[in-house]
Every structure is written in C-alpha cells, then in structure tokens.
Amino acid sequence: MDLESALHVFTELASALWMTLALAAATLPLGFVMAGLATWARRSRHALVRRPADFYVLAFRSTPLLVQIFILYYGLSQFSWLRDSYAWFVLRDPFACAVIAMSLCTGAYTAEVMRGGLAAVPSGVVEAARALGFSPMKTFFLVTAPIAVRRALPTYGNEAVVTLKATSLACTITVMELTGVAKDLMGQSFAVIEIFCMVASIYLAINMILMIGFKRFELFLTPQYERTERKMSL
C-alpha cells in the first residue's frame, strides 16, 4: 500500500470511527433505560406488567439482531398509515432505526444482567434495612442497588463490548460506520489484510479502553475493606 492510498484509508476510517462511537454512545444509555424499565416491570407484583416484560426479554434475546434491525427499517415501511404518520420522520432514518433496534436488543440482554445483579444481593441485608425502618424505596436505592450494581458491573462491561461490536450491523442499513467503510475499502483495493488489521486494531483499542474504564469504575465502587490484590492490579 503506498502513502497516498494509506492516507485515503486513514481519513475514511477516521470519519467512520466517529459514526461507530456515535452509534454506541446513543445505544448504551437508551439500552440501559430500556433494561431499567424492563427490570422494574419484571419485579412487579402484577402479572399484567410482569408478563409483557418477560416476553420482551425472551423475544429480543432469542432472535438475531439483524432480524430486529430489518423489521424496523425495511419491515415497517410496508404500512402506508405508518409512512404517513409523524413517526416516519424517525423510522425512515437509518441511524435512528439502528439505534432503536440495538437499544431494544441490548436492553433485553442488560435486563438479564440486572436481574443477575439483583439476585446476588444477600436477602439478609435487605431484611436488616427493613428491620431498621427503611422504607422500601430507601432500601432499594441505599442498600439493594449499590450492591447489585457492583455485582453486575463486570457482566455489564462485557455487554457494552458486545454492543460496540453490534454497531457493525448498522452498515447493512446504509449507516457508514467502521465495518461498512472497511467493506467498501476492501472491495476497492487489494489490500484486504492491511485494512482488516487496521479496523480490527481500532475495535480492539476501543474494547480495551471500555474494559479498563469498567475495571476502574468497579474499583471505585468497591469499598476499601473489600478491595483485594487482584482488583488493585488494574
């Protein structure tokens, strides 16, 4: 690869990197909110609230993300009443569709992560808080949630990396992020391996930054007396 084409590849990848980061940055918070709502609903006393949330998590976890994206972007265009409605301003935009579909998907997986975190909270601690006269609300936010967050954080870090990798699917609906640009560049040139290595190292670098960030955050949340040598190492 000569210098000129290398520069061309670099500029293309740099702009694509921003698109990937934008997708991930929009998807993660939205997915987190979805997961929070789903977790709240799944813990409800009323089956009418619990059942749909359970079904949401099951359905989005057992169908491939690509199907979800295509249903939203291509599938919904079948309905003319939807095309005439205001919702179409959002649904005709590939970026918005990708973010919505990915948020729903990662939301379902994250809801499962949250359930695991909440299940790991010792029941004795919750009972102790209730015995001390904490209201249910106070118990949840001051006792249950902090422990659950700490337990769930490593798994959530993995889920964030999965979401980052999932942003690559946005290129199937014309959002030109890293993988989509890499595909075009590979198709144009014969430097397939070189381009793959560059894009792969970008993904690996972002993964590593995410992983280290989550490790740091976990350490920050761990109280002094629970910190061990293993956790301190990062």
């Binding site: 993988t179 590979m186 793959f196 792969a200 690996l204």
Partner: peptide
C-alpha cells in the same frame, strides 16, 4: 481468541469474502 472475540463477526465475514480468493 482476542482478535476473533474482540472484532465484529461481520468484519471477519468481509475479510473472508474479499480475502479468501486472493
């Protein structure tokens, strides 16, 4: 394992699609 688990599968598919013939 680090490479294949850290990179989107779609990118691997594109690598194989454009790369295997060559």
């Amino acid at each position: 394992t680090t490479l294949l688990r850290g990179v989107p599968p779609l990118l691997v598919i594109f690598l194989l699609f454009f790369g295997t013939n060559g």
